[in-house]
Amino acid sequence: MNLAATFLARIGAPVLAFLAAIGRVAIYAAEAISHIARPPFYFKEFVQSVISIGYFSLPVVGLTAIFTGGALALQIYAGGSRFSAEAVVPQIVAIGMVRELGPVLVGLMIAARVTSSIAAEIATMKVTEQIDALVTLSTHPMKYLTVPRVLAALIVVPLLVGLGDIIGVMGGFLVGTKQLGFNPTTYMKNTIDFLEAPDVWSSLAKGAVFGFIAALMGCYYGMQAGRGAQGVGRATKSSVEAAAVLILAANFVLTSLFFST
């Protein structure tokens, strides 16, 4: 009996801890959303976040997208040639980049670059009492730190995803036309004709959700940081892990919602 109880307790404890963590993140997310709608709004911090999340992520997003688009074109060409379907490269690159790879890879890059930086910055502020200082200076940390970052990511990441989609398609275009012998005009025509509006909208919607997740996880784990350098390191690691997993899970849910018939 005791053994069984111990065994069940060993399983139950982490499950309860996991559910409690989900609950805390959900409450934090709800609180962040409610603060977006209520003044004061720190516009300067919002603009700084737009620049740091959007503008400074452009190189990594561009490079990720162009190499992925190029590799995708090569793979589809190689795979398609097995049943004489090489001609579908433009269409599959377009749909693959716009529907899936664009938003997911940009989301993961944002998790790596932005979530980690937000978590490390806020965690450092926490361990050096800067968060307490904010409170004593009559400034709500949720409004001053979380809202500008989450709102900026919500707006900017879809734009990055849109740009990543275009650059990814262009990566496929470059490989297709320079290496695989496709006619440039036909390649572009096939790409544009094949894509439909829902492909693009779903891509941007995924970007908004992924941006929200990435910034929220950075802020949440930063605020939860323990003491010292170890606390900052742990918060940063946990934030990236959580953001990456949640982005992939959300991608599955959104793809099911948008495209399951």
Partner: peptide
């Protein structure tokens, strides 16, 4: 309030 480490915003 004056914090122990200053707690200045970097």
């Amino acid at each position: 309030m004056l914090f122990q480490g200053g707690a200045l915003f970097d």
